[in-house]
Simulated scan of single mutants.
Amino acid sequence: MRRLALLAALAVSPLGHAHDMHGMAMGHEAPLGFDAAIDAKGRLWVVDTVGDHVRVRRSDDMGKGFALSTIVNPAGEPIYAEGENRPKLALGPQGELYVTWSQPRKAPWTGFVRFSRSLDDGAHFDAPKTVHVDRAEITHRFDSLAVDGKGRVVVAWIDKRDLEAATQAGKPYLGAATYYSWSTDRGEHFVPERKIVDQSCECCRIALARAPDGSVNAFFRAIYGDNIRDHAFATLSVDGGHPAVQRGTFTQWHIEGCPHHGPSLAIDASGVKHAVWFSAADDKPTISYGQLVPGKPPVHTAVVATTGASHADLAVDGQRVWIAWNQMTASGLDLMLRESTDGGASFGPPRAIAHTDGASGWPKFVLSAHQPFVAWNPGGMFRLVQVTP
């Protein structure tokens, strides 16, 4: 009964909206999901949704105003646009703009991963395409997007084709699988998808980060044993090899369902994998920080925040590490921050850097000339919060 009570508590998002076990909103919340990035010219790019349309905007004054707003999919289509399942944005080395999102299909909790690109500085986007070869009306959702050091576009997502096959064969299968694909021609074509691993969590976002060697690493919630929902990480090979998946966290959280609470990952110039993740093992909701070690418990672990804290993101620049998260309070939602100046060995105390009386999308770090900002979306009113000492 304690597990059921915990699951029921987790099924109510920090935004105050109940969700089912598959990530669909059970209500009529406004879509607050967004993504953001700053390009080499110091311009801010934001992707979000307006009705059945994905929208990309550019700000030349760090979010005070938007000089450009372009609809990515003029024809319109259903879009998952909140929580863990929101549109994504990535920048290419030649000024390319890449966008992905998950498109609901007719059956509940199904979806296709969609992709579009702009090669003319956001003025126009190509007609959207589906990334994966498999077109079964099943889950292909919770997409994540990155660009590697050679400009190749990498897309990862949660996929239930193996669950469907196991069910038809009368075999047990927990959760879903994670898959990925990539493009070597700036998104013109994608290779047939490959599996990262079986039995990962159904509705937790996948964190992608680029390593110093240019490769893209994935960090995601996996399932071990009888519904132990910890995390795994892997380098996503784009040269014909298969990802070597390693266990990353060892909280031993046993939960028979998805907590809708994916991790974040940032890799510094020396290759250290800085990570934050959520667990409620022993009925203690906790956001933790640690540095990932293949097959071993993380090192330099620290408790970042506890009750009421959710959906942390982090950024790394040299010896500075920043963590931001949403914190529920009696008067609304605080955007919280903790900072390390010694490479994650220790962190200063938590402090609030913004507040909203209502709901907000999850925080997202962006860096400009070594200066961190936190993109936030309280009530759908996008803002960029500068991190000051």
Results as ranks from 00 to 15, higher is better:
Arg152Tyr: 05
Pro87Val: 00
Ser183Gly: 03
Gly23His: 02
Thr341Ala: 10
Leu145Arg: 04
Ile228Asn: 10
Ala156Gln: 03
Pro108Cys: 03
Glu256Val: 14
Asp162Gln: 14
Ala280Lys: 13
Arg186Phe: 01
Ala9Thr: 14
Phe112Glu: 04
Glu202Trp: 03
Ala165Cys: 04
Asp198Ser: 11
His311Asp: 11
Ala352Gly: 05
Gly27Val: 03
Arg194His: 11
Asp313Cys: 06
Thr49Met: 04
Asn326Pro: 00
Val153Glu: 00
Lys64Arg: 15
Val245Phe: 11
Phe190Val: 03
Leu97Thr: 05
Trp109Cys: 08
Arg229Ser: 09
Val131Gly: 00
Ser310Ile: 01
Thr306Met: 08
Val374Asp: 01
Gly65Met: 09
Phe125Leu: 01
Tyr173Phe: 15
Met1Ala: 13
Asp39Ser: 08
Asp268Ser: 10
Ala90Val: 02
Ser288Phe: 10
Ile255Asn: 13
Asp213Arg: 12
Lys106Met: 04
Gly241Val: 10
Val299Lys: 14
Gln199Pro: 00
Gly225Ser: 06
Gly348Arg: 10
Thr356Val: 10
Phe220Asp: 01
Glu77Ala: 15
Ala90Tyr: 08
Ser237Lys: 13
Pro263Ala: 02
Ala281Asn: 13
Pro128His: 07
Thr139Asn: 10
Gly16Thr: 12
Gly271Gln: 09
Pro74Trp: 07
Phe115Asn: 00
Pro108His: 08
Val299Glu: 12
Ala281Arg: 15
Glu84Leu: 01
His300Ala: 12
Val385Ala: 04
Asn217Arg: 14
Leu119Val: 07
Gly83His: 10
Gln252Thr: 15
Arg114Ala: 00
Trp101Pro: 02
Thr341Ile: 12
Thr100His: 01
Trp277Ala: 07
Ala25Ser: 09
Arg86Lys: 07
Gly151Gln: 08
Leu7Lys: 14
Arg57Thr: 11
Ala127Trp: 00
Gly271Leu: 05
Asp148Ala: 03
Lys88Glu: 02
Trp376Arg: 08
Thr167Tyr: 10
Asp162Ala: 07
Lys364Trp: 03
Ala165Ile: 11
Trp253Glu: 12
Gly51Asn: 11
Phe220Gly: 02
Leu335Arg: 13
Gln94His: 14
His132Ile: 01
Asp342Gly: 07
Gly240Arg: 09
His19Met: 14
Ala207Leu: 00
Gln103Leu: 04
Val54Gly: 06
Thr130Ala: 13
Arg221Met: 06
Pro78Glu: 01
Ser181Ala: 15
Val147Glu: 00
Gln319Tyr: 04
His17Ala: 09
Asn326Arg: 15
His254Phe: 09
His231Asp: 04
Ser331Gln: 14
Arg55Ala: 05
Asp61Tyr: 12
Asp148Ile: 05
Pro172Ile: 07
Asp134Trp: 12
